[in-house]
Each structure stands twice: as C-alpha cells, then as structure tokens.
Design a protein around this nucleic acid. Structure first.
Length: 308
DNA sequence: AATTGTTTACTAATCA
DNA sequence: TGATTAGTAAACAATT
C-alpha cells in the first residue's frame, strides 16, 4: 500500500540478479557486511517488486549466499547476539559485473579458482581473515579522520579515504549506491530508533522506490538512512545492536588464491583482534574487504544508472 | 516455532 | 549447440 500512484513503474522487476542485489546491500554499509535480515530489508526497501513473494525470492537469495563463493559468512561475536551471521563479499571476488550486466556475470567467482583479480587479496583463509581485519582497521581510522575534517562533510565518500588510489569503475556497486543515496550537503538525520529510514530514500530508477520527489538527475535528498560520508547510519548504530565482530570468515576459503597480502598488511597488530575495543566503540567496526569489489568487482551497477 | 544456512535438483536463459 | 549461469523449489539441519 505504500506508494500510491506510482506503482506501475516501480513494481517492475529490477534488472539485477540476486547476487547483484546482495552485493549492493553489502556495499551499502561501511562495514561491508550485513546480516541476512538486513539484506532482505535493503532489497525490499529499495525495490518494491521484492515486497511480494518474499518466501520465494528470499529462499533464492539464501541459496545464492551459500552457493556462491563470492559471499562469505562472518560470525557474530559472543557479545553481539542475534540470529545468523553477517555476510560479506569475498575480497577476491573481483570484477563480477565488469561486463555491465547485472543479470549474468561473465564468470562465476570461485574461490580457489583462477578468477581472482584483486592483487591485494590474501592467499590463505587465515590471511583472508587477517586481511579483512586490516581493512577494517583502515576503514575505522578513515572514519575517525573524516569525522574531524569539517570540510569533508556532505557527501564525502569514505571509500576515497580508505582507498585513495583505487579507481571506482563506473559500474561499481559502491558507486551506484553512492550516487543513489549521496547526501546533497550534510548530515542526515537519525531515526529515533537509531535505525535507518529506508523509505525516505528517493529512487533513481523506476524499479526503485522512494518517497521523495523524483528527479533522478538531481542530487538525491538522502534521508535519514545515510549519514555523512554516504553511509547508512545503521552501520554505526546497527539497528540498536552494537557493531558486528571483526570479520572472521566461516566459509572455508580454499587456499589457492593466486594473490598475496601486500607487505604493509602483513604485520597485523594485535589491536585487530576480534575482541579489540575498537569494535565496541560503535564507531563502525568496519569489516571491510570490499575493496576488491568496490574498486573493480562491482563494476557494473553504475553504468546501468548512467544509461537511464 | 521461526529464522538462517546448506544442499540437491531441475528449468530457463544466455554465452561462446 | 553445448556449457555456463541464474532462478526456483524443496528437504533438511542448525540456531535462537
């Protein structure tokens, strides 16, 4: 019943596969990881089509999460109770959508296969965890730094802080998300619950739903869903619960990833342990690995927008 | 009991 | 046209 008057268009099935949609959801938050329920929510909030037949598509989505190596499961810390784990994108999943199509990838990402494209990706499961933790730390410091730079407020992109040298392909999921929900100028409001108000987002695509005025060409007035730096507040306040644990992939990641951890990431400070105080500060306990995807992998969603 | 996660099987669409 | 990828259904286990 939400959306009187504008349904015909926005109810269309989005031209994205479940993998694309899930990647979008994960990329939309600074931690780069979300619990299943939040992935559902992200999709339903933005794509009215998925507000129906939830049993069907959610089953499919869960299937995709388990079946595809590009998604990794990250356990909750004991002090972070809740159902299910967090889901993140594999650091090495590379350019899954570089062909510009979000419906069909050129090649399925397979851990241990030869499709790894991220030179920063670790080569062993333990290293992957380590890598993610390092990324988390970087992201965290970036957040702190950015928070103290007033001139950076207003649509400032965190990724440019944490990944100063990583070029964001126009198709990057991260880019699409950023464009879709970038704050025109300043801080966004928090919902009283500390939870994002997805429905106040304005859509840039017909199949996306928002409530505000619809000028896809104009900067989107980002509602309370996203704070400055273009990230969802939820990431900071994680729906009332505290932050997720540092990433520790559950899904065993086969060892043959032909890449290496860069030297500067090789020495991991103990401060990155999953029990690090940083994770309990509520300042975003980033998980991030998403660099691979953000810089390359997700290369595609954006062009779809550009085309529109 | 409901949710989350895994797995298998099958069909359809698309790619090379 | 065969191979690959995506979508769906379903059974089942584990967890909360």
């Amino acid at each position: 019943m939400p959306r009187p008057g504008r349904n015909t268009y926005s109810d269309q099935k989005p031209p994205y596969s479940y993998i694309s949609l899930t990647a979008m959801a994960i990329q939309s938050c600074p931690e780069k990881m979300l619990p299943l329920s939040d992935i559902y929510k992200f999709i339903m909030d933005r794509f009215p089509y998925y507000r129906e037949n939830t049993q069907r598509w959610q089953n499919s989505l869960r299937h995709n999460l388990s079946f595809n190596d590009c998604f990794i499961k990250i356990p909750r810390r004991p002090d972070q109770p809740g159902k299910g784990s967090f889901w993140a994108l594999h650091p090495s999943c590379g350019d899954m959508f570089e062909n510009g199509s979000f419906l069909r990838r050129r090649k399925r990402f397979k851990v241990g296969g030869m499709l790894v494209t991220d030179p920063l990706a670790p080569s062993k499961p333990q290293d992957t965890t380590h890598y993610l933790q390092q990324q988390a730390k970087l992201r965290l410091s970036a957040l702190h730094a950015a928070a103290h730079l007033p001139q950076m407020s207003g649509g400032y992109n965190l990724s440019s802080v944490t990944q100063p040298s990583s070029f964001k392909h126009p198709f990057a999921i991260e880019n699409i998300i950023a464009r879709e929900y970038k704050i025109p100028g300043g801080l966004a409001a928090f919902s009283t619950s500390g939870y994002p108000l997805h429905n106040q987002l304005t859509p840039a695509w017909p199949h996306m739903y928002g409530s505000g005025m619809m000028d896809s060409a104009a900067p989107i007035s980002m509602a309370s869903d996203y704070s400055a730096y273009g990230m969802p507040l939820k990431s900071i306040c994680h729906g009332g619960q505290t932050l997720p644990a540092f990433p520790v992939p559950i899904k065993p990641t086969p060892t043959s990833m032909p890449t290496h951890i860069p030297a500067f990431l090789a020495n991991s400070p103990q401060s990155l342990s999953p029990t690090s105080p940083q994770t309990a500060t509520g300042q975003s306990s980033p998980v991030a690995h998403g660099e691979a995807l953000s810089s390359s992998a997700s290369t595609a969603l954006q062009s779809a927008v550009a085309v529109h």
